[in-house]
Amino acid sequence: MKLYYSPGACSLASHIILNEINVDFDLVRVDLKTHTTEKGVDYYEINPKGYVPALEINPGLILTENVAVLPFLAQHDPKQDLIPPSGLGRAKVLEWLGYLNSELHDAYAVFFGPELSAEEKQRAYAGIDKILKYTEEYLQESDYDYLVNDHFGPADAYLFVLTNWSSMIGHDLSAYKNINALREKVGSRQSVQIAMRDEGLIP
């Protein structure tokens, strides 16, 4: 398999899950400003949508969108317990991926477009906080070690990656005790450390 990624972008979640499963894969860096790969290939020829992640499963067979790529990868090695094979447990993973993708991802994304005024930033921070407060309260009431169950999975990786963006936009996460506890747990995993080093995010 081959993952098209941009350092620190949401494709980092796929990179993390790839490190968790027993599979060989290649990484291809994409410049999202020029929409070219590190070898100068027009990325639109690979993924007409123009953004990451894109997972090349076989030559010419491309899968895109986090809500599709992450479950596909997570189910690759059932021994890893990254995602339930069926039933309500699997549905809960998809529920969280959908929520993170449609709500939290979009809330952060406004910071990566045209520059925001001070007033627009405060409104955007409030939008992020609304979603994080829901997640914080959910974790507070949950008896699980991770978002969905007692096993690390794709929703945990995705939440970790998205909340990483707070440091890039001057957003304070200190009020979110449970989210930060989960972030620390996820961030300490070898799969995460390797992915972040490979993408140049940590030494």
Rank of each mutant, 00 (worst) to 15 (best):
Y5D: 07
P7T: 07
P7D: 05
L12F: 09
I16L: 05
I21C: 02
I21V: 15
N22P: 01
N22M: 07
V23E: 12
V23C: 05
D26T: 10
D26A: 06
D26E: 13
L27N: 09
L27G: 03
R29D: 02
D31C: 02
L32A: 01
K33Q: 04
K33P: 00
T34A: 02
T34Q: 06
H35Y: 11
H35Q: 15
E38H: 02
K39F: 08
G40E: 06
V41C: 04
V41G: 00
D42F: 03
Y44K: 15
K49I: 13
K49N: 12
G50V: 13
Y51F: 14
V52T: 12
P53F: 08
I57W: 05
I57N: 00
N58A: 04
P59S: 00
G60A: 06
I62A: 00
E65H: 11
N66I: 15
V67M: 09
L70D: 03
P71C: 00
F72D: 06
A74H: 12
Q75A: 06
Q75L: 10
H76R: 14
D77N: 13
L82D: 03
S86L: 10
S86I: 14
L88Y: 12
R90Y: 04
W96Y: 09
L97R: 09
Y99K: 13
L100M: 09
N101W: 01
N101Q: 14
A107C: 04
A109Q: 14
F111C: 05
G113H: 10
E120M: 13
K121D: 05
Q122F: 06
G127F: 09
G127E: 05
I128Y: 05
D129V: 12
D129E: 15
K130F: 08
T135P: 00
E137C: 02
L139I: 14
S142D: 06
S142Q: 06
D143Y: 14
Y144K: 15
Y144I: 02
L147I: 12
F152K: 02
F152S: 06
A155T: 05
D156E: 03
L162C: 04
L162H: 06
N164S: 07
W165K: 12
S166P: 05
S167T: 12
I169S: 02
D172F: 07
L173D: 09
A175V: 11
A175S: 08
N180T: 09
R183Q: 13
K185V: 03
G187T: 10
R189A: 01
Q190P: 07
V192K: 08
I194T: 15
A195N: 09
R197K: 15
D198H: 04
I202T: 15
I202K: 09
P203V: 10
